[in-house]
Design a protein around this nucleic acid. Structure first.
Lengths: 120, 120
DNA sequence: GCACATAGTGTCGAAAAGGATACCGTCATG
DNA sequence: CATGACGGTATCCTTTTCGACACTATGTGC
């Protein structure tokens, strides 16, 4: 998964903004991170909290977050399998960012867009 | 332009995070907003600040930001054409978000990714 | 007449992201 | 023996996004 979005971030002063975006961009990364702030969780625990996300997508997002060093994946060699996800310090340092996103969203985002124009 | 990303944001408590992301997601929106915090600007002024963004892309991003009510577009009926872009109050309210993104980015984003692994 | 600047638009095509679905191995339960 | 839970993969296909490039209109300067 390329995950490029921008080749470099020194083109312009505001480019580090895009740089950060690179990490949380991905359809479910924001929510995943948000939930992980609550604490360590197992795969299906996260899954249940994000019902609209398919298993494949969740796996994808978790893998990318892991590759970016934002979350840690701990496998317990048991049966049935048990895998726990938690934030790394780097991931935890994103908390103010996610919080800012959430605060703005709570104030400005219409929860169900269709409701406002579903008068068709 | 669909710009959906998520159908609704009430599926899970963290979903407003994705809701906010919907507005600033788009390859150059973060930078565009960032630059507009400095003040009103003309089209080519913005363009010069984001050299890697093509004209068509910039137009696109500006149109989407406008449609989302984050920026205002003022056309002066002159020749040669003159169009000014500025933030709306709603757009300005995103400032803490963009700032949070920038702060984290400044601290955590490697400016030129290839430099760190271009040892090929 | 030609090129340049402004602020775009239109079309095309490639690449990436996302979704649906089916499948894997193992153990416990019924 | 069949089923379900766990934590995934593999494959296929569609949608979305991005980038390149050409083209528009008008007025000015040469």
């Amino acid at each position: 998964m390329p995950r490029i979005r921008h080749e470099r971030f020194d083109c312009s002063p505001g480019c580090t903004v895009e740089g950060t975006l690179r990490y949380i961009d991905g359809k479910w990364k924001g929510v995943v991170l948000y939930h992980l702030f609550e604490g360590t969780m197992r795969f299906n625990e996260i899954r249940r909290r994000i019902p609209n996300c398919t298993q494949r997508m969740l796996t994808n997002q978790l893998r990318e977050l892991e590759a970016d060093g934002l979350i840690a994946r701990k496998i317990y060699p048991e049966v049935p399998p048990k895998v726990e996800y938690s934030l790394t310090p780097r991931g935890r340092s994103l908390e103010p960012v996610i919080t800012a996103l959430k605060v703005w969203g709570d104030a400005n985002v219409t929860l169900a867009p269709e409701a406002s124009q579903a008068a068709a």
